[in-house]
């Protein structure tokens, strides 16, 4: 069968792409966050999952209780010195490829709490992909961060992190 005959038999039922783009498209539209709430931002994270703004429109409504099943860690709130090793353990338990959103001022920089108890920015222990400002950020801010992350995942192709 020649290539013309093949094309004719398929009609319009095919499209061409690269494997990297296809994988990126799939990964980007099914980012499953770990269900990991820390403080105030966790409440807004829950609000993002509910009917008002509905994170499900972007394929991320499946908050997984187990880090083994999740691709994204949303660090939603302040990370204390006591919590830091646990957060790192959960991050290590997540399978590659994985991404981190640092939600809110506390997770990003320590926020209003510049003291002995808090980690001054979660990027000291895990690599962060997107930072969200705000204390706490609105649910729409979290959606925006997710969309930025999705664009990045889609552009990364098969091997996201070298």
């Amino acid at each position: 069968m020649g290539i013309e005959a093949l094309a004719e038999s398929l009609g319009q039922n095919f499209l061409t792409t690269t494997l990297g783009k296809l994988v990126g498209w799939g990964r980007g539209n099914s980012v499953w966050p770990a269900q990991f709430g820390l403080a105030c931002c966790a409440i807004e994270m829950i609000a993002t999952a509910t009917a008002g703004v509905d994170i499900g429109r972007f394929g991320s409504e499946a908050f997984r209780a187990s880090p083994r099943q999740s691709d994204l860690m949303i660090v939603s709130g302040r990370v204390s010195q006591k919590m830091a090793p646990i957060l790192r353990t959960i991050y290590d338990q997540m399978p590659e490829p994985k991404w981190v959103i640092s939600m809110g001022a506390c997770a990003s920089t320590g926020g209003v709490f510049n003291n002995y108890a808090l980690l001054q920015g979660v990027d000291k222990i895990v690599p962060v992909d997107v930072y969200i400002p705000g204390c706490p950020p609105r649910p729409e801010d979290l959606l925006n961060a997710l969309m930025i992350l999705q664009e990045r995942i889609k552009a990364q192709g098969i091997l996201p992190r070298q």
Binding site: A39, S80, K82, V112, F113, N114, N115, A117, L118
Partner: peptide, 14 residues
């Protein structure tokens, strides 16, 4: 407890 200890009371002294 203490996994969310934020030092709020100490912070307020400053």
């Amino acid at each position: 407890i203490g996994y969310l200890h934020t030092g709020i009371e100490k912070q307020m002294e400053a």
